[in-house]
Amino acid sequence: MANALHIQRRSARNHLSAVPARFIVGRDRRGSWIVQDREGLVGGLFRSEAAALHFAAEECNHNPADICHAPEGTVLDLDGFASSSSNLH
């Protein structure tokens, strides 16, 4: 979980970066955890924050610069993805 803490600390500074993080981790309206990539190609719905962070880390070869948390109060959704359940993990 040390990686999760590192990612949380970076989330506040990440919006200032010239290159945005590849993945954003946050919650949907029901409180489930969501991972979205900035292009809407990869992501999913997860039962826990740890599972969401694990997925994002695996997808970006554990580069913490590619992962950030959504700003406080932001609600994410999977509307950008195809309606196929194959995108949900």
Results as ranks from 00 to 15, higher is better:
residue 82 A to T: 15
residue 78 L to P: 00
residue 59 E to Q: 10
residue 27 R to V: 11
residue 40 G to V: 12
residue 14 N to D: 08
residue 73 G to C: 14
residue 5 L to W: 13
residue 14 N to G: 04
residue 76 L to P: 11
residue 32 S to E: 09
residue 76 L to E: 05
residue 46 F to T: 00
residue 49 E to L: 13
residue 69 H to C: 14
residue 11 S to W: 03
residue 29 R to T: 03
residue 41 L to W: 04
residue 6 H to I: 14
residue 20 P to H: 07
residue 86 S to M: 05
residue 69 H to T: 09
residue 43 G to I: 12
residue 6 H to V: 15
residue 37 D to P: 00
residue 46 F to V: 01
residue 7 I to S: 08
residue 54 H to E: 05
residue 85 S to M: 10
residue 17 S to G: 09
residue 83 S to N: 10
residue 57 A to C: 06
residue 12 A to Q: 10
residue 69 H to Y: 14
residue 82 A to E: 15
residue 69 H to Q: 10
residue 10 R to K: 14
residue 53 L to C: 07
residue 55 F to Q: 03
residue 57 A to P: 02
residue 34 I to H: 00
residue 8 Q to P: 01
residue 88 L to P: 06
residue 22 R to G: 08
residue 33 W to A: 03
residue 4 A to L: 11
residue 48 S to D: 09
residue 16 L to N: 07
residue 62 H to E: 04
residue 89 H to I: 14
residue 36 Q to W: 04
residue 27 R to W: 01
residue 24 I to D: 03
residue 31 G to W: 09
residue 50 A to M: 10
residue 25 V to K: 02
residue 50 A to V: 10
residue 76 L to D: 01
residue 60 C to L: 02
residue 34 I to C: 00
residue 35 V to C: 09
residue 4 A to E: 13
residue 58 E to T: 09
residue 31 G to Q: 05
residue 40 G to K: 06
residue 75 V to K: 12
residue 85 S to D: 13
residue 86 S to P: 07
residue 79 D to Q: 01
residue 82 A to F: 11
residue 75 V to W: 09
residue 7 I to E: 08
residue 25 V to N: 03
residue 52 A to V: 00
residue 72 E to D: 15
residue 80 G to C: 15
residue 70 A to P: 09
residue 87 N to G: 13
residue 7 I to L: 08
residue 88 L to R: 14
residue 23 F to N: 05
residue 38 R to C: 09
residue 77 D to A: 05
